[in-house]
């Protein structure tokens, strides 16, 4: 099975938004490799023609009527905000697209 490299761990950490420390990259590379090596056993059933189960319940069509329910007050909504301004969540500058 694939050996998980330090670079792969770094890539996963970027996808998962974790600013891992250099020593963590090495540590996790070894552990993830062990775990994945072990759990890769599931591929024993890969060629079996059975449908996947993503959910234990056989339910369908659980819906609600399009009726308005009370919202939180803005104060409640913002009650946990690390910072706020003008009744909005204040966050550091968002990079990315201009």
């Amino acid at each position: 099975m694939p050996g998980i490299t330090r670079e792969e761990v770094a890539h996963l950490a970027r996808l998962a938004r974790l600013e891992l420390k250099p020593e963590e990259l090495d540590h996790f590379a070894g552990q993830l490799d062990d775990i994945i090596g072990a759990v890769a056993r599931v591929s024993e059933v890969a060629d079996q023609d059975v449908p996947p189960t993503s959910h234990p319940l056989p339910l369908t069509n659980v819906m609600r009527a399009d009726e308005v329910r009370p919202s939180l007050t803005p104060e409640q909504a913002l009650s946990g905000a690390p910072a706020q301004e003008q009744q909005r969540f204040k966050v550091p500058q968002i990079l990315g697209e201009e």
Partner: peptide, 22 residues
């Protein structure tokens, strides 16, 4: 994140779901 990433999904997540069925 690894198990869901493209290229690995079928082998890992997909197979795990088959195990679930079995």
């Amino acid at each position: 994140t690894y198990a869901l990433s493209s290229g690995y999904y079928d082998a890992y997540y997909g197979s795990a779901q088959k195990v679930r069925t079995l």
